[in-house]
Design a protein around this nucleic acid. Structure first.
Lengths: 343, 343
DNA sequence: ATGAAAGCGCTAACAT
DNA sequence: ATGTTAGCGCTTTCAT
């Protein structure tokens, strides 16, 4: 029962007219007589004719499809970005293909290649954590495929970029903790070869300096996942008696740290105030609800897609690149109310 | 600088040979002389030749691409399923296009149409909550596109299916609560036109009956999202004094219910024991950690993709359908320890 | 107002 | 061992 989809040629044969007439009739070409148009359109409707997108794309070298390459779909931030991208994309007649690299460099290379092979009109990329080679990005340029980086941008490649102001976000969160009375704040940091790791750490230290607080390297612990926190639990607990605040590079790290401290008899936020980064839905589920900075994923996605369309449709000069920066906003909840008891 | 990608024709012209020779040389055809092969392959490598997947697919009417249509990417269950699908797919030389419907029927129709237009080799679908018309699924069959439903299957369409045993999972969770001493258990239920809603409720009532507990309709509250729980908070609080357990249709609903109860002075699990369904990462983040049943998303994804490949590659009879069922497993945590205090 | 022909990039039957 | 041709489905110039 695997019936081949009907083609323009089929319609032409059945109706006893030429393929070109069918093609024109279907798109209301003025040359075609109303009678023929009527005939063709009605028939096409009846047999549920659908143009073959492959053939269309091959002919026009335009797929109306863009590729999205991201580390992990499951993170709230990335899925907000995807929603932003998709809403703009669909509105402008583009389809989006999502590829997740699972933070795997090899997969990133393969995914990009597959997108290029399938002649997508443009690509939106957020780099994997393990990417240190950039020739696969350079190849895109050589192939004439427009690219916009977002969030995890590649500094070595000149291109449009859309980012959250990680430095400022970290600074805001840290100043908030200081405002709540914290004097000795620990930072749970991401790897420093990642821009977000570097910028958030620098925002953190900048806030400390501004308020003339000591910036103790011992208080900077490298862990940026839930698992990493549990692996470093001993280090955190050893320092816990000295500190009164934690700023974590993301929400899951912040939440895991709260759990580690609570299991060791500390009360949050009474003994130690905590702030995270990202504002996913976890922040509300956490106990106590987590103070964090909101990253505006949806806006970032929209902006990235708009920039990409600018390049695809040639409304922007080819070598003219732009960087859009979104400043995060503090979302204050219970976890940062130093000294307060929570039920 | 938008250089068109190089084609076989280009190579042929430059090397002064015919396109067919180039094509054959590139795929090690035995007819071609080693010298020519060497020449062509080296050159192709040098200019970074890549076949145009569009042209390939058009010619072979085989795209080596499958479509995934799911309600929401962000849910842990669905992203596990995607990982399972992708791992099998890549291993067998298929690419996957992910479409999220956002539980929107119209979007589901559009996404499926786009996939068919792009001639994917097969489609994996988990239905949107708001889908009550099924002609768009029937059209797939008419177009000869193999489909496998998973999790949110469509009863009205005969096809391969991969599901979690929701009835049994709900029964296991409910019996667990009963075993912990619960006598009056509330159920937070999903809409009954959804199979998962129906099956989980029936698993719940079946466990009650088995243990000769009363099944009170007042204890069945319709809410299956975090927001819905807050909307029904008054109803839940009104009944809270009577009950000693809650079985929720999913984890976020269970967690929201715990929060509502806690904010109203109830202690979990001392006063009321709670169990959820799904075992996403939230279950660990919740306070107290949530007892729930694990849905085996990764396995379901793998199984669904394997079934789909069977149909695509014709190793399975066309009208021969299979249903694979995965039984969830209980993951016992703190939220269900009725009578116990948690710090 | 309609049709014939060519071509998007590729491959495979059919020459030579 | 290599080249010529035709065709996948579609559109569009160029006839008529």
């Amino acid at each position: 029962m695997k019936s081949q989809p009907i083609t323009i040629k089929d319609i032409a044969r059945i109706l006893g007219i030429s393929p070109s007439t069918v093609s024109r009739a279907l798109k209301d070409h003025p040359d075609i007589s109303p009678k023929t148009k009527q005939l063709v359109q009605t028939f096409a409707e009846k047999v549920n004719y659908r143009p073959n997108a492959l053939a269309l794309s091959l002919r026009s070298s335009k797929t109306n499809t863009i590729g999205i390459v991201i580390p992990e779909i499951v993170h709230h931030f990335f899925s907000s970005v995807i929603s932003g991208i998709e809403d703009v994309a669909y509105g402008r007649g583009y389809n989006a293909i999502i590829c997740q690299t699972n933070e795997n460099y090899q997969r990133e290379v393969i995914d990009l290649q597959a997108l290029v092979d399938n002649r997508v009109d443009g690509i939106l990329v957020s780099m994997s954590k393990n990417t240190h080679e950039f020739t696969h990005f350079e190849n895109l340029r050589e192939n004439g495929v427009p690219v916009v980086f977002f969030d995890r941008i590649c500094e070595q490649i000149s291109s449009d970029r859309v980012i959250a102001d990680d430095f400022e976000g970290a600074r805001i969160a840290t100043k908030h903790l200081i405002g709540k009375g914290c004097k000795k704040i620990m930072h749970l940091a991401a790897p420093q070869h990642l821009l977000i790791g570097k910028n958030r750490k620098e925002g953190f230290t900048s806030a400390l300096k501004e308020h003339k607080l000591v910036s103790d390297d011992r208080y900077i612990i490298k862990c940026d996942t839930r698992e990493a926190v549990f692996a470093k639990a001993d280090d955190i607990i050893r320092l816990a008696p000295e500190i009164d605040g934690i700023f974590a590079v993301n929400d899951s790290t912040a939440i895991a740290a709260m759990q580690v401290l609570q299991r060791n008899g500390y009360s949050i936020p009474k003994d130690i105030a905590v702030a995270g980064f990202g504002d996913g839905p976890n922040a509300n589920i956490a106990y106590p609800p987590l103070t964090t900075v909101e990253q505006k994923g949806y806006d970032i996605g929209q902006a990235a897609m708009r920039l990409l369309i600018g390049h695809i449709e040639g409304t922007v000069e080819d070598e003219e690149f732009e960087t859009k920066i979104f400043t995060p906003e503090l979302v204050e909840r219970t976890s940062s109310q130093l000294g307060h008891n929570v039920r």
